[in-house]
Design a protein around this nucleic acid. Structure first.
Length: 578
RNA sequence: GCCCUCGUAGCUCAGUCGGAUAGAGCAACGGACUUCUAAUCCGCAGGUCGCAGGUUCGAUUCCUGCCGAGGGCGCCA
């Protein structure tokens, strides 16, 4: 049970191996001229010094009878082997997939513990679109990794420690704790942060108090810690609102802020010292990493302990690695963090590897992503503090816009249903527009495009799903009962749809292998396109006879389940009506 | 100055472990609604795959150089 393209590659591999005299990849790819094509003969011919078409023929001879899987095999062009699946094979595979708990997606052959570090907003600071990207991408990866059988540990590495807290706590005291809690409680984190920052810059007296407060915080002063906890809890309460609204899995159980690593920082230094990796440079304790240089082409170190004796984010990131590997038992660490952190994470990884904290076979992966841009191609929110786009306001707007659109298209829907649908559509649209393009690139945030019911958008996919639900609702047919029907594929649209359904396996695995949710998005869009084409050409309830009707209902059911499950893996809900 | 990422149709994006004619959606144009929800479908049109070399049977894909955009480059995180 797997994607037919994988099945056929496995089937042809021994034949290729026999001709090659050793392992040889058949190089099966989808084709315009057939279902698929095996390109392996061309490279093999060169290696053997033979004519490619002749090699292809030898492979086919060695493969023997493949009629249980393929309706035809044909050597074409310079030496491609065109492959056409037999309809009975497709139908059987589809029937198997619908009875498979993962809808035909292969389980991981190597399940292990994966830590996914994502979202990571800062306490007493507004979440912005960068956190949106991290949250949405990270959450989709979490769901997909769990789906194939990994043990996934979510970690929200919130910025809850460091020098800014001196100024934040002093500002909290100035405002009065209750007033401050109120302001933070309504989610005005930016106002609070900016006011504190302004005072810090304008008043030496305040600056002095802030610095003293940092020392008290780090020294564990109980009253200071209490104030700090107020800041943290008010902020996380706000973060949680956004997470619920955004429909991501993160909860308080996943919080693993910088402060949590405090006790582990000194041991990081000690262990590096014992490993003889630590060097002193300009008063700081550092580790030099080969291959990194500064502006003057001198070796660039990772600073573990600053000249003033304090630690920085490199230290806590190293503590993270140790904690995740040694305590949690993770073998794979994913960091869903913006592209500007690339060098930092490379250096952290290099040090962790040198120190032996990331053994051979352990993976540390930077799931990098680009910026969210406005229509003007400038960052939607500049780091230097342009106007901030508040996440909760952005999500509210998404739902409002979706609600207008739903009301327009489906005026008969009840207000309660409309709100529920608008929430799924609006939030889904925002998440999908973030997930559907290659994450390493910047993307342009465009309300009209993401909420459009046409093109590669969440509403288009959701609509395809809703239409199927509508068929079953109208006909009063039990979805589960139809699953035992093995479809008969007659029309080209039926066949295309069935073959597409079977490719869910590869789509999910491509997403996991590349850590690229857009691979799954592209697949689901293709699925929706194939379905609507089928829907236009192949009447279901008005089919010519009962057998054809049931066959098409089975295709509908399988499509809807994969659409719904696929969207869910992306963290997007699929309403039953729209 | 060095390093990293990106550059594909007017716009927004796929595709690239080297394969036959580079694909969608939008916008434009032409069709299809007494509908299993037309929120759709069908068709037509649109490209020196940033530029120039190299590798080879074959390059948008790999390599080198250049151009353009963004980011990073020691005590903020």
């Amino acid at each position: 049970m797997a994607d037919p393209f994988i099945s056929v590659a496995e089937r042809l591999a021994p034949a290729f191996a026999a001709v090659a005299g050793g392992a040889c990849d058949p190089v099966v790819r989808p084709s315009d001229r057939a279902d698929g094509q095996a390109n392996g003969a061309l490279a093999l011919a060169k290696k053997l010094g033979l004519q490619p078409r002749e090699v292809a023929q030898q492979v086919l001879d060695a493969a023997g009878d493949v009629s249980d899987m393929l309706a035809s095999t044909e050597i074409a062009g310079p030496g491609f082997i065109n492959l056409v699946f037999s309809n009975t094979f497709i139908a059987e595979q589809l029937s198997e997939a619908t009875h498979n708990p993962r809808l035909g997606v292969r389980a991981s052959s190597d399940p292990h513990t994966v830590v996914v570090d994502y979202s990571a907003p800062n306490v007493a600071k507004e979440m912005h679109v960068g956190h949106l990207r991290s949250s949405v991408i990270g959450d989709a990866l979490v769901r997909a990794l769990m789906f194939v059988g990994h043990t996934v540990v979510r970690e929200n590495h919130i910025g809850d420690w460091g020098t800014p807290f001196g100024m934040l706590i002093e500002h909290l005291i100035d405002m009065g704790e209750d007033n401050a809690a109120n302001e933070l409680g309504v989610g005005d984190l930016d106002g609070f942060y900016k006011a504190a920052r302004r005072k810090f810059e304008e008043s030496d007296e305040f600056k002095g108090r802030a610095r003293a407060r940092v020392v008290m915080l780090q020294g564990g002063d109980e009253d200071t810690l209490r104030l700090w906890r107020t800041l943290v809890s008010e902020s996380t309460r706000y973060f949680n609102q956004v997470y619920r609204q955004l429909d991501v899995l993160l909860t308080d159980d996943d919080l693993m802020g910088e402060s949590a690593y405090n006790p582990m920082l000194a041991p990081v230094v000690e262990r590096l010292r014992e490993a003889k990796l630590l060097e002193e440079s300009d008063g700081a304790d550092v580790v030099f990493v080969e291959g990194f240089t500064n502006r003057d082409n001198e070796p660039l170190p990772l600073i573990i302990r600053k000249g003033d004796g304090g630690y920085n984010y490199a230290t806590s990131d190293l503590a993270c690695v140790i904690d995740r590997v040694e305590r949690i038992g993770a073998r794979s660490l994913l960091y869903v963090v913006g592209a500007p952190q690339a060098q930092h994470l490379q250096m952290v990884e290099a040090v962790a590897r040198k120190a032996g904290w990331l053994p051979e076979g352990y993976i540390m992966n930077h799931v990098s992503f680009g910026s969210v841009l406005g229509a003007d191609r400038k960052m939607l929110k500049s780091r230097s503090g342009g106007e901030t786009v508040k996440l909760n306001a952005l999500l509210d707007e998404a739902v409002e816009r979706a609600e207008i659109s739903v009301a327009e298209k489906n005026p008969d829907m009840s207000a309660a249903d409309r709100t529920a649908v608008a929430t799924m559509v609006g939030i889904g649209a925002v998440k999908y527009s973030d997930l559907s393009s290659d994450r390493v690139k910047d993307y342009i945030f465009d309300w009209d495009r993401m909420l459009s019911f046409e093109g590669n958008t969440a509403p288009y996919l959701q609509y395809a799903h809703a239409r199927i639900c509508s068929i079953f609702r109208r006909a009063g047919i039990d979805r589960a009962a139809i699953r035992d029907v093995v479809p008969t594929l007659v029309e080209v649209q039926e066949r295309d749809l069935a073959l597409r359904i079977l490719r869910f396996d590869s789509a999910v695995w491509e997403m996991i292998d590349t850590l690229g949710p857009h691979k799954l998005c592209t697949y689901l869009f293709d699925l929706a396109t194939d379905f609507t084409s089928f829907y236009e050409h192949c009447p279901v309830l008005k089919a010519d006879n009962d057998a054809m009707r049931d066959s098409r209902l089975a295709l509908c059911d399988a499509t809807a389940r994969i659409m719904s499950e696929g969207l869910l893996l992306l963290g997007i809900r699929a309403p039953e009506q729209m």
